[in-house]
Amino acid sequence: MSEKIKNYRGEALKSADIKEGRVPTEKCRPKAKFAWSAGIAIGRFLEELKKAKIIASTCSKCGRIMVPPRIYCENCFKPTDGWKYVKDTGTINTYSVSYLAADATRLKEPILVAIIDLDGASEGMGIIHKLGEVDKEKIEFGMKVRAVWKPKEERVGSITDIKYFKPVKEETP
């Protein structure tokens, strides 16, 4: 604050002022329900997840194999012109051990979350997903992981058709 200004406005409230009703308030919960159209690219992506496959879209100009797929290449600003399956394996680009749920409540068992660069896609084309069947202490950058799919009858065309990614055991030569 400028040293010339002597009076700073604002009346701070404590959460008890609200809880105990010392300060009048209005409460509201907006009722808004949505049906988001999946669109063309993600619509296809979800259909393929149902078949336990991961599909990318490709741009013939810059040669990128992009996942999640899109119908336009944002770099070349032209329509993508091909579809290509990528593998359901990849490497951990970065990860976190989260003790927070979506509503900021605290979890006893952490969610393991990672960005996974998928094999077969262009370099650095990651998706965000969870990790499983791994001790949180043993996760490493660059670790090879594989998707664990829900059984066919449980797959509905959702990003959660992949339960999580788990470490790939190094095969002995």
């Binding site: 993600i42 979800l46 989260s98 927070l100 969610i111 979350v113 969870k130 990003i159 959660t160």
Partner: peptide, 12 residues
């Protein structure tokens, strides 16, 4: 579609 079903939190 791709992120919220995972239970995303901003801190992630």
């Amino acid at each position: 579609i791709l992120e919220r079903p995972l239970g995303m939190n901003l801190i992630w």
